[in-house]
């Protein structure tokens, strides 16, 4: 690879990054301005959020079960199986709940946002809206962003709750009663963990919505372009989620001192 190619790739990368931030900034500037498009928000919340509930709960259930199973196997030799509730809770609520729920939503919803907006771009519906005098950031981006910001923490909470249930199903096989299971949780967690576990998905929701909208609105080249965009949006938002999970955790750790 010669220097010119690298140069071009870097330029492209920074142009995309700049575009992404520009869209995010515009959206933030306009998200609290009229018109609010409540109906669009409700539709998107239902389509992007509520419809992902089942898949997030399923993810939570099995992850909770497998975490409990692993923990129980480890704890048994030390006769410490009563700690299983706490171990499941701490891994799920702080890490796996937010990340797995967000990854599922990125795959399911990120691609859907991109495909929908991308199709609107290539069929000139977005142009038509602009000519009708509509601000497409307010009309198309803001409601999706708001829906994701609200939905993802809720979905994560649902996944967390179900994972604790899944953990208990496994623990009960090892003779642990519900009281013991629940008592283990506060031994491993403080209230701040719960907050962190909800801040993360809110931020990931922002990443998913903005990436989906940015890639969708910049779609070129017909049906093939829409397919490429959807694929790209899922990859980019998944990678961003994993990257920012690390950075957010690092920030939380630093602030705790």
């Amino acid at each position: 690879m010669n220097i010119a190619v690298i140069d071009k790739i870097m330029l492209n990368f920074f142009a995309e990054l700049q575009g992404w931030f520009a869209l995010a900034a515009t959206t933030f500037a306009r998200v609290f301005r009229r018109p609010y498009y409540y109906r669009e928000f409700a539709v998107q919340f239902d389509k992007l959020g509520f419809s992902s509930l089942f898949i997030c709960m399923l993810t939570g259930l099995f992850t909770g079960m497998v975490m409990a199973l692993q923990a129980l196997v480890q704890l048994k030799p030390f006769a410490a199986t009563s700690y299983v509730g706490g171990m499941v809770a701490v891994t799920m609520i702080k890490e796996l709940g937010p990340v797995l729920a967000s990854l599922m939503v990125a795959g399911r919803v990120g691609s859907a946002i991109t495909a929908e907006l991308g199709t609107m771009v290539v069929t000139e519906q977005v142009d038509a809206m602009r000519v009708e005098g509509t601000d497409i950031v307010k009309r198309l981006v803001a409601p999706r962003l708001k829906a994701m910001l609200l939905a993802l923490p809720l979905l994560t909470a649902a996944a967390d709750a179900v994972s604790l249930l899944g953990g208990y199903i496994m623990a009960s096989g090892y003779g642990i009663n519900p009281t013991m299971y629940l008592k283990g949780i506060p031994q491993f967690m403080v209230f701040q963990d719960l907050i962190e576990g909800l801040v993360k998905p809110t931020f990931f929701g922002f990443l998913i919505a903005m990436t989906g909208c940015y890639v969708g609105l910049n779609t070129r080249g017909g049906a093939e372009g829409v397919g490429n965009s959807a694929k790209q949006a899922v990859v980019v938002s998944s990678v961003l989620i994993l990257m920012f999970d690390f950075f957010l955790t690092k920030i939380f750790v630093v602030f705790r001192g």
Partner: peptide, 11 residues
């Protein structure tokens, strides 16, 4: 006002 080639109706 514009009439786009494919109509560009909001589907």
């Amino acid at each position: 006002a514009i009439v786009f080639q494919g109509g560009a109706l909001f589907d």
